[in-house]
Computed example of a mutant assay.
Amino acid sequence: MTDLQEEHHVPSAVRWRFLAVVTAAVVGGSVFYGVSSFQDYRERSAAAPGVALETSGPPPAGGYVMFRNTASGAGYGHIGTVPLTEPGGPRRLEDTACDRIYASAAVRSCLQTTPGVMTTFSDVVLDADGNTLDSWPLPGIPSRTRVSPDGSLIASTAFVTGHSYAGTGFSTETRITGVDGTDHGNIEDFALLVDGTRVTAADRNMWGVTFSADGDTFYATAASGNATWLVRGSLSARTLTALRDGVECPSLSPDGRRIAFKKEVSGSATPHWRVAVLELDSLEEAVLGETRSVDDQIEWLDDATVLYGLPRDGAPGDSDIWSLSLAGGEPELFLEHAWSPAIVR
């Protein structure tokens, strides 16, 4: 066992805790997932509008929040935008529905589920006006997506089934694709290095990519056996180098100095994730003041504030986006009836 593994050793009973939240959907199979999701989508779409809407038009000038609308009404599940200066104001909704959305100023990545006799999943790439540029199939239920700051790279993570090593019967697949069509492939195929030694175990899993601004470097979570690591990836070298243990779903700050992530603190089979921030130069972490369990890939509002989604109590299928300052204080409601935020400037 490496020094990194010893520092944050995880009991074997919770080896796959990072996937526990999707067990019910995956066990039922993709057909059940697609049908049930479509039924929920139809019911919520037929309900009365739950938020104020504005007439269609271009995205707000001067910076905006893009998100998945979870308010009832005809736009349930669709891409929404609100100005950064007025997140609680009327929202602009687009025709495209997504399970998860992320965006740069020029490009969006929209993970979709298409129900049918055989439910399918896809990553649809859109331009700034919402026009489809490209799309490709996903191997399973959509989970996470990120776009590089310059809009040239897209990462997507899906839950997949059938890997014999996974005791629960499922695992993850994360791919990075260039908007120009370059396929960097499944990052599970990159060389995973822990304390200078290559990890070749069959149960390697990677998820939660976040991109640096240099066009080559990215960060992600890697897992094998009883350990999870924050890894720094290189597209050109096709390597993943472990930096430290216990970091899930990293998100790089706009200034490139910090990683926000979800930190598992329960030590049991039922996960509880706290919001934490890691200084990249010192690898020192600070757990922030949100005490509820946050199962999300955190977004940065600015270099001092993070955003994340939480399910709305008593309202299955609905969620809110909350903000939290690195300086301390209580979480604040940032955007009601919304999920999967992306800050676009």
Rank of each mutant, 00 (worst) to 15 (best):
L4G: 04
H8K: 12
H8V: 09
P11R: 13
S12V: 12
A13D: 11
R17H: 15
F18K: 01
V22G: 04
A25E: 14
G29E: 09
V31N: 10
V31A: 05
Y33M: 08
E43R: 14
R44L: 14
G50N: 07
A52F: 03
L53M: 09
T70K: 06
A71F: 02
H78W: 00
I79K: 03
V82Y: 02
E86S: 15
P87M: 08
G89S: 08
T96Y: 01
A97C: 01
A103M: 02
R108P: 00
L111I: 06
T113K: 05
T113W: 02
P115N: 09
G116E: 07
V117R: 04
D129V: 05
N131S: 13
R144K: 09
G151T: 04
F159N: 05
G162D: 07
T168M: 09
F170M: 05
F170S: 08
S171M: 01
I176E: 03
V179A: 09
N186T: 09
D189A: 13
F190K: 01
F190P: 03
T197L: 12
V199M: 12
A201R: 09
A201S: 15
A202M: 02
R204I: 08
T210I: 06
A213T: 13
T221R: 04
A222W: 01
A223T: 15
W229A: 04
R232V: 08
L235Q: 06
A242I: 09
R244V: 09
R244D: 07
R244H: 01
D245H: 13
G246W: 07
G246M: 00
S251V: 05
L252A: 05
P254T: 06
W273I: 06
W273V: 11
R274T: 09
E279T: 15
L288K: 04
E290Q: 11
T291G: 02
R292L: 13
R292T: 13
I298H: 03
E299V: 12
D302W: 04
P316S: 03
I321S: 05
L324K: 04
S325N: 07
H337V: 05
H337I: 00
